[in-house]
């Protein structure tokens, strides 16, 4: 069953085409990766799905409902949660309160939201840091905090924007393990933008490659990395 479907979605900025008629479908329970060089339009694509901006053309259908053009909070209430490429926890609030705020979406009582927040903090190895001020955390901790806050809204689809970027290999493995467990245990569907190919290969069941706003390849990760167009436009260019 398809959870998220994009149909010829396009976005222009002052005449420049950032995303050009991109179509793809994310099945329920999948981990789907979008890769591509910098400036390929990945984050723009994400922003359109998450409701941060409206597409100029095309349709975005989530769980059978057209969501393009909805505001970000309305998209979130329908079950799509996101993280930001440059992490944006609520800086002056505690770790616990950050996650609690996400949990308030489906819980009216602050006490119940706090209980739920604690469960998620435990899951993301942040429980012992729950009284820390978010701004004082290290980058890996802040990244996991953002994932925890997004999860607290109980999404059916989690959008992760370069959640591995800037992490050391051990931290990356830890995040991969957490995401895989979430996907396995609760059937959470994940759509991620990622540069770290090691994480993509380890996680994704399907990969979409964007280049200059155009989807140039799509398929299982092992196939995509062997695709000559992909190798030429992206992987080859980035190889050391």
């Amino acid at each position: 069953m398809t959870l998220l479907k994009l149909d010829s979605v396009s976005k222009r900025f002052r005449g420049l085409v950032a995303v050009d008629q991109v179509s793809f479908a994310v099945p329920q329970g999948a981990i789907f990766a979008v890769i591509g060089p910098n400036g390929a339009g990945k984050t723009t694509l994400f922003n359109m799905i998450a409701g941060a901006m409206a597409p100029d053309a095309g349709a975005i259908v989530f769980a059978g409902e057209a969501i393009h053009g909805l505001a970000a909070d309305a998209v979130c209430r329908r079950g799509i949660a996101r993280t930001f490429q440059l992490v944006r926890p609520f800086p002056a609030l505690t770790v616990e309160d950050n996650v609690l705020i996400g949990a308030l979406l489906h819980r009216h009582e602050v006490g119940a939201a706090r209980v739920h927040a604690h469960a998620l903090l435990a899951r993301l190895d942040l429980l012992d840091k729950r009284q820390r001020i978010a701004a004082t955390l290290t980058l890996p901790d802040r990244k996991r905090l953002e994932v925890a806050r997004a999860l607290a809204t109980e999404p059916r689809l989690l959008l992760l924007d370069e959640v591995m970027a800037g992490l050391r290999p051990t931290e990356t493995d830890r995040m991969v393990a957490i995401l895989r467990a979430l996907n396995r245990d609760s059937g959470l569907t994940i759509l991620l933008i990622e540069h770290v190919m090691r994480a993509v290969m380890a996680l994704a069941s399907r990969v979409l490659v964007l280049d200059h706003g155009v989807a140039i390849a799509q398929g299982p990760p092992e196939e995509v990395v062997r695709d000559p167009t992909v190798v030429q436009s992206y992987l080859g260019a980035e190889a050391d």
Partner: peptide, 26 residues
């Protein structure tokens, strides 16, 4: 400040876009 409304306010004060992404009708 201890209620639901207070937490939503603090989220908006800290980062309005992130608050919206967390489902708050800012």
């Amino acid at each position: 400040l201890r209620s639901r409304i207070g937490y939503c306010w603090l989220a908006i004060r800290e980062d309005e876009e992130a608050a919206r992404a967390a489902g708050i009708d800012t």
